[in-house]
Nucleic acid binder design. Sequence first.
DNA 1: GAGTGGTCTAGACCACTCA
DNA 2: GAGTGGTCTAGACCACTCA
Lengths: 251, 251
Amino acid sequence: MLKTRGNMKPTANAPAFQPLYRQIKSLITQSLVTGEWRPGEPIPSEIELAGRFSVSQGTVRKAIGELAGENLLVRQQGKGTFVASHSEERSQFPYLRISPDRGALDSLAATLIDCRKVKLDSASAKKLDLASGAGAFLITRVLSISGRNAVYEEVRLPATRFRGLTVETIERHHCMLYSMYESEFEVRILHVDEQIKAVAAEGAATRHLGITKGAPLLTIERVAYTYADKPVELRRSFCNTREHHYRNRIV
Amino acid sequence: MLKTRGNMKPTANAPAFQPLYRQIKSLITQSLVTGEWRPGEPIPSEIELAGRFSVSQGTVRKAIGELAGENLLVRQQGKGTFVASHSEERSQFPYLRISPDRGALDSLAATLIDCRKVKLDSASAKKLDLASGAGAFLITRVLSISGRNAVYEEVRLPATRFRGLTVETIERHHCMLYSMYESEFEVRILHVDEQIKAVAAEGAATRHLGITKGAPLLTIERVAYTYADKPVELRRSFCNTREHHYRNRIV
DNA sequence: GAGTGGTCTAGACCACTCA
DNA sequence: GAGTGGTCTAGACCACTCA
């Protein structure tokens, strides 16, 4: 079917050789992007895919293995392979790196403050790959971690991708944004980049976290990406680290 | 040889089944821990290992693949498989997450301030799995990133593992600590855990970074681990984030 | 051209899930 | 017991490195 094995017309300074399993990987990714298989649903079995693509099960396995490594698919022995979903992950908040200093993260609650339409300033627009002045939703909320108000967040979403977003939509999902993006807007977050700084508290953050102006505050500026490294969310978090911290493991 | 295939005496509430390739992985790891193969050196070829362990090349490949995924081994097509080494990694500072806000990280210099013996307080000792009052080396230094003094660090190392450490040893390695641990003390850092907070600047950090007392400062408390999740370094970094930030990608 | 890791196959069998 | 993913093999051939 595809099967163009080995070296395929190497262009001037280009990569050339693409192994078969990577071509299969691309085909599977396509089906994920187009929504042929949706978050939470099983994809066809390895044997069925091998038949469909006219390759061996081992080649399909290798393609699926890489996609599972990238957290796009989840394999379950005996059951099947499923499209990863933010509504089903063991951690409801896989990208939340704030933990209490003592004890485990035993509870997490989000309080929505506001959701309204704004125009993006040029810096924000650039980070979202949009033109300056483009329309966006601005969501503000407070996260309470283990019973303490610890984080104040401003989330910006491109108006075009999130058309029709309302306070009710957000609250229906109990403020679990990435799960909401997925099920309501077919926007699947695949990875996030964060830049972290220590700043002196001011403005809305002081009010909502109940801290004094000038107190040290951790800021996290996040850009969240979907398929093809397309940025689809901009988030600025202000975190009171008196009793919490940002945790990270590097291997 | 080992070859006890399939389910091997499942104990009461225990994991049971260990696939062959994981046994091979353990054997290879053993050779890394004991130093049979040393950082930077090649390990035997897949075919040779397959013969030695009486398994197929595919099984060896799977074991090596996991170890490469954990950054313990590095594969190079056509050349061989090598023991990963901090002296050879593409980035000389794989665990340094501080970047300048504008422009790339174009230069990095460390200035050693001091290295002396201290006794560990109980909190530090606990993090290093040692008894309170245990001897340690305390290294203090300043990192200059793209020409700006951005980080002041205090590094604590257990005296027993780092016997004979001197200022000269550190300077001989141009302050590249993890490379020094590896080549001088056979201590290989495999992963680090970090806790990050925003605090008000005080003490030595204000002096060495030239900032005023009370200014917001990012602190990174790091525990670095070697084989078997054994902690071997404790590091507290104080980072001026006026023109720099801590970057993180979460997938 | 010899030696390395990388890909791919076909086939056997295993562990696990679920009805 | 049927169906899934997981392991393992033996063997063929490919891409890459280095002398």
